[in-house]
Amino acid sequence: MAGDAAQTRAAADSFRIYYEREDNADAPDGYAMSHSPALYLISPEGDWLGQFAYGTPASEIVADLQARL
């Protein structure tokens, strides 16, 4: 699901995420998106539960998820 430009900016701002469209003639659609690299864990109710930095081993993420079950 995606929102319009204002909704996307509001969501990015709420998570303090950087993103920017960059023209790139070599990309299939003619552009690429530069963005913050992170994985966010959000509850079904919309509560922030945690964040994993880029490069976090999958085993660490799985262990965190299993501990929450």
Rank of each mutant, 00 (worst) to 15 (best):
M1Q: 03
M1D: 09
M1P: 01
A2E: 09
G3Y: 00
G3R: 00
G3L: 02
D4T: 03
D4C: 00
D4E: 04
A5Q: 04
A6H: 02
A6F: 00
T8G: 05
A10W: 01
A10F: 03
A11Q: 06
A11D: 11
A11C: 06
A12P: 00
D13I: 00
D13V: 01
D13H: 01
D13Q: 07
S14E: 05
S14L: 04
F15M: 12
R16T: 05
I17D: 01
Y18F: 14
Y19V: 03
E20P: 00
E20R: 10
R21H: 09
E22Y: 04
E22V: 15
D23P: 01
N24F: 03
N24S: 06
N24Y: 03
A25S: 13
D26T: 12
P28Y: 05
P28E: 13
P28T: 07
D29V: 08
D29G: 05
G30N: 08
Y31M: 11
Y31I: 12
A32Y: 00
A32R: 04
A32V: 14
A32E: 05
A32S: 13
M33E: 08
S34W: 02
S34Q: 14
H35Q: 10
H35C: 06
S36E: 06
P37H: 14
A38V: 13
A38G: 10
L39H: 09
Y40M: 10
Y40Q: 08
Y40V: 08
L41K: 01
I42S: 07
S43A: 14
P44E: 11
P44K: 12
P44C: 08
G46E: 02
D47H: 11
D47S: 11
D47N: 11
D47Q: 12
W48S: 05
L49M: 15
L49Y: 07
G50N: 07
G50L: 10
Q51F: 02
Q51Y: 02
Q51W: 02
F52P: 00
A53C: 09
A53R: 11
A53L: 14
A53H: 13
Y54C: 08
Y54A: 13
Y54L: 13
G55M: 08
P57M: 10
A58C: 12
A58W: 11
A58L: 15
S59P: 04
S59G: 13
S59W: 11
S59M: 14
E60T: 15
E60P: 01
I61Y: 03
I61F: 08
V62E: 09
A63L: 10
A63R: 14
A63E: 14
A63F: 15
A63T: 15
D64Q: 14
L65E: 10
L65T: 14
Q66T: 15
R68Q: 12
L69A: 14
